[in-house]
Computed example of a mutant assay.
Amino acid sequence: MDGEQSGLRMRQTTPEQDKPALDLVVLRVLDGGTRRPLRAAFRFDPSAPMVVSLTLSPMRGPSVTWRIGRELLRHGLHDESGEGDVRVWAAPGEEGRAAWMRLESRQSSALLELPARAVSRWLAATYVRVPAHAEGRALDWDGFLTSLCDDFAEPTD
């Protein structure tokens, strides 16, 4: 899921220290199997618990941030997950050590090799912070529905 989350707003902001983070190096897989390191910063905001942010920073050039479904990422560390812009799957023969992530946009695409164990431990910590069954409570559903209704209201002249 690239971009913002369908207009859903957060109920409250959370201090930075309460947002679990994971900074590591991932490998971008290029043609011919060549691998290039990228700095990757995974961020989780408990006030928007259905997504994680992944900021990729190449050694040269601008950084790019993707917003990825937390469940998609978790499932992808073990089985094929996602379709369209973001896909994640376990690397064959790596026994839980590596996973692949494919990111696609209109402008470009990237195949990344992730250290699955590190990402899995980090994700587990996010689920301790906000369990899957509690994700919906962090979203401002009333505000979201009100904004939808306002969008469909007849203009007054």
Rank of each mutant, 00 (worst) to 15 (best):
Y127F: 15
A90G: 14
R87F: 01
A132E: 13
S63Y: 12
G33D: 13
D151L: 14
S147T: 03
H133M: 07
K19S: 04
E4L: 11
A98W: 08
G96F: 08
A153T: 08
L139W: 14
L111Q: 08
A110S: 09
E154I: 03
A48R: 13
E4H: 08
P58K: 14
L30G: 10
E95Y: 04
R87E: 06
A41Y: 04
P92Y: 03
W100K: 05
F144H: 13
A91N: 01
L72A: 07
W100N: 06
I68D: 03
W89M: 07
S120T: 12
P115G: 09
D157L: 15
A153S: 06
D2N: 11
P58C: 14
R74A: 11
E16H: 08
F144E: 01
M50Y: 12
S81T: 02
V29L: 12
S63L: 14
G33F: 09
L24H: 09
A118C: 09
R60N: 04
F42M: 10
E83W: 01
A90Q: 15
T156G: 02
T34W: 12
E4D: 12
R35A: 15
E80T: 02
F42T: 05
R137M: 05
E83Y: 02
R97H: 09
T55K: 05
A134G: 04
P49F: 08
D45F: 06
R9G: 13
A132W: 07
Y127C: 04
E71L: 10
R43Q: 13
S57M: 15
R70F: 10
G136D: 10
M50D: 08
L8V: 11
L8C: 00
G96T: 04
H75L: 12
L56I: 07
W141M: 03
R60S: 09
R74M: 05
L114K: 05
E95M: 07
E154L: 07
E95C: 02
V119G: 09
P46Q: 11
A118R: 13
Q5N: 11
A134R: 15
S109I: 06
G96R: 03
D151P: 01
A116N: 08
E135P: 01
P37H: 10
V128Y: 06
E154N: 01
A153R: 10
L139I: 08
V130L: 05
V130G: 00
G143R: 00
R121K: 14
W122H: 06
R102M: 11
Q5R: 09
A124P: 01
Q17F: 09
A99W: 01
Q107W: 12
P62N: 13
P131F: 03
T65Q: 15
L77E: 06
L56N: 03
R11L: 15
T146M: 01
A99G: 07
Q5P: 03
F144N: 00
S53V: 02
P62C: 02
E4N: 06
D151M: 14
G33A: 08
G84F: 01
V88P: 00
D2S: 08
T65C: 12
E71S: 05
A110F: 04
R70T: 04
D45S: 03
G69D: 14
L56E: 01
L145P: 00
T55E: 11
R102G: 00
A48M: 15
D150S: 12
G143S: 01
G32R: 09
M1Y: 08
Q17A: 13
A48Q: 14
A48W: 08
S147H: 02
R11G: 08
W66E: 04
